[in-house]
């Protein structure tokens, strides 16, 4: 019996098992659900349970949901808000994360270990709790809000005096918390990229007479573009589809797309519409992903030609 089993393993049976078990799993629990979403986006909403059906004028290809996507400004606005917030968050992550990553490469190795640990630490704590931490700071009678209010009132003429800074339930809050939550995703790939750069290049450039800022602009920055792109993608993509942050600190009157999908699905029980919005979001995300994989493959090609060890 055992001999038979090991025979079977040796005749590439084990290879088949290793490939096909997870493969089937992913097809059943990941691919099929997406086929369902795609199919659902062409269905019609009904009041049955589950709330959809294939009927109407064109039973196979019902474009009703997609038509609504373009005719109801709610959806267009949600997409614009999402992309806008995601872009702003990405830019701020880059502006804060880049100097931090570069700074990490310049400190002593003991400090570097500690600081890297500190960058990763929030990443292991609950995402939800990190959002929550900001809710505590942004509320109207929190110490932070009062501090900001006092600073504002001290610096501006009396006529502009305010009772508190309105932060909760604004797009500003969404962007702030997104920057906070996704900053490690920007710092880590950037750090990995910057750390690999040869310090001799900087020295060579300086040796050839460039001033530090010039060296940064001519040598460091161009070489860190793959890191910027990787970090940018890691921030932009989840930011676009974010649900938790806008639900907790966002402005309900201009929702982001993740919230629209969730609301359509649960509150309105409009599965076809939720699916159509989801499909459109995926299409929106495919573009930056293609850019990303283009840069990725180019980086790999460069690595291959340089004969990386």
């Amino acid at each position: 019996m055992t001999a038979r089993l090991s025979d079977w393993f040796n005749k590439r049976g084990w290879a088949a098992l290793i490939i096909w078990l997870p493969y089937i799993w992913l097809v059943v629990f990941f691919l099929i659900p997406f086929v369902i979403v795609l199919g659902m986006s062409f269905a019609t909403r009904t009041s049955t349970a589950p709330p959809f059906g294939f009927g109407g004028e064109d039973p196979i290809l019902n474009l009703e949901s997609y038509q609504r996507l373009f005719s109801d400004t709610l959806y267009i606005r949600a997409y614009l808000t999402s992309v806008g917030n995601a872009v702003v968050a990405t830019v701020f992550c880059l502006l804060i994360g880049y100097p931090m990553a570069l700074g990490l490469t310049r400190v002593s190795s003991t400090w570097r270990t500690i600081l890297l640990m500190l960058v990763i630490l929030p990443f292991w704590t609950s995402f939800l709790l990190r959002v929550y931490a900001w809710m505590g700071l942004m509320g109207t009678n929190s110490w932070f809000n009062r501090l900001l209010t006092d600073i504002w009132n001290a610096l501006t003429p009396e006529a502009w005096e305010i009772a508190h800074v309105t932060m909760m339930n604004t797009n500003f809050a969404v962007v702030l918390v997104m920057v906070y939550s996704y900053l490690p995703f920007m710092i880590l790939p950037l750090y990995a990229n910057l750390e690999r750069l040869d310090p001799a290049l900087d020295e060579a450039a300086m040796d050839l007479g460039s001033r530090p800022l010039r060296v940064f602009w001519d040598v460091t920055l161009p070489q860190s573009i793959p890191g910027i792109i990787a970090g940018g993608m890691l921030v932009f993509i989840p930011a676009c589809g974010e649900l938790i942050i806008p639900s907790l600190v966002g402005d309900a009157s201009s929702p982001m797309i993740g919230r629209v999908i969730s609301d359509e699905f649960t509150s309105s029980r409009d599965w076809p519409m939720a699916s159509a919005v989801a499909v459109a979001l995926l299409v929106l995300l495919v573009v930056p992903l293609m850019v990303y994989s283009y840069f990725e493959s180019r980086a790999n090609a460069v690595k291959a030609t340089k004969g990386a060890p």
Partner: peptide, 29 residues
Amino acid sequence: MNRRPLFLIGMLCFGFAFFYIPILSMILF
């Protein structure tokens, strides 16, 4: 060479303050 690290270290301080003030405040409260 020595002006840039100062800026970078300043950014590191700012960044870590940004990371940890909300968490510390949460712990305190």
